[in-house]
Simulated scan of single mutants.
Amino acid sequence: MPASTPAPAAGRPTPESPTSRILRASFATEEAVYGVILVAGLIAVSGVHGATSFTVFATVMITVVVFWLAHLYAGTVAGHGLAHDRIVGIRESFRAAFRRSLGLLLSALIPSSILLLGTARVIDDRATIWVALWTCVAVLAVLGFIAFQRRGAPWPIRVLGSLTTAAFGVVIIVAKALIH
């Protein structure tokens, strides 16, 4: 019979897998917030004139990947060289830039999956675009809440941070409604 894994001692965190560490470090970052706002803006603009869910999805994915690659490149170049009296190699700089920029790429996954539902005709194209936009607002709210929770803020401040972060998505929706 295999031995059971001992429970972590009181006060000690449970060990994380490398994947969960990367996701935790990439989620609720400025890059993730920026990525969701970028996606919301792209959905709003590309979905204005009766575009299909697939067209909006393709526009979002291509643009997000290009922005992510540019962010990754800029972070690698900026981090390479002399830093705090030591040399940072290109590989180390790339790894750090990759970890920081991953949130921008990951943030597009949830609203993009909603757009795929429209592409698969599970949801009407027009409804899909609105659902994807409101999903961006929800993701922003969660990102804001997590960011303030990580900093140990009391729950009213977490809620306020959540609402403030979500407000960026609401502004994009209001702009889309006015343009449409």
Rank of each mutant, 00 (worst) to 15 (best):
A132H: 07
A9D: 15
P18W: 15
F67M: 15
G35H: 11
I87W: 14
F27I: 06
G79A: 04
E16K: 15
G161P: 10
V88K: 01
I110H: 01
T135S: 06
T128M: 00
H71N: 08
G103D: 02
V137Q: 04
L140C: 13
G47V: 01
D124H: 05
G89S: 04
F148N: 13
R151I: 14
A3L: 15
L163C: 03
L42R: 07
E30H: 10
A74W: 05
T59N: 15
T128L: 01
L104V: 04
V170S: 05
D85Q: 03
F168H: 12
E16I: 12
E31F: 01
V36F: 07
D124C: 06
Y73G: 11
G35E: 07
F57I: 06
A74M: 07
L160G: 02
T63Y: 11
A147K: 11
G41C: 11
D85T: 01
A25M: 12
A32H: 02
A175L: 15
A120S: 06
I114Q: 04
R151L: 15
S101V: 00
V66T: 13
S113R: 05
P111V: 11
L104I: 02
P15W: 00
T14P: 00
L102Q: 11
W155Q: 02
S46K: 01
G81E: 01
G11C: 12
L117M: 14
